[in-house]
């Protein structure tokens, strides 16, 4: 699990698509439709907490094993980082 602090870079934001009834992550020239868990993770990116802290908070909220949540959060954010929709910085 990464000790980095994930955040949405300039030009990336979430938007509620009323037509689809889904939350969308909007970036330069691309858009990704988020499911509820995906949106919950993105909503936690405050630019202050580490991935470890975010995963622990989500595990508590959803009553899920922190190990499983940590793996899912790391994979999800890495996928978005590869698409340049999430960035990470050292604490």
């Amino acid at each position: 699990m990464s000790n980095a602090i994930p955040y949405l870079p300039r030009g990336v934001r979430t938007h509620y698509d009323r037509i689809r009834g889904r939350n969308v992550l909007l970036g330069p020239e691309r858009a990704l439709m988020l499911d509820e868990i995906g949106h919950a993770i993105i909503a936690e990116l405050d630019g202050k907490r580490t991935e470890t802290q975010i995963a622990a908070d989500l595990a508590t909220r959803y009553g899920a094993p922190v190990e499983a949540v940590s793996v899912d959060v790391a994979e999800f954010l890495t996928d978005l980082a590869d698409k340049r929709l999430v960035e990470r910085r050292d604490p």
């Binding site: 992550l25 858009a31 439709m33 988020l34 993770i41 989500l58 959803y62 949540v69 899912d72």
Partner: peptide
């Protein structure tokens, strides 16, 4: 809602 693997699907 229970925890499930998060998904982000690209809209083309």
């Amino acid at each position: 809602m229970a925890w499930t693997k998060p998904k982000a699907v690209e809209i083309n």
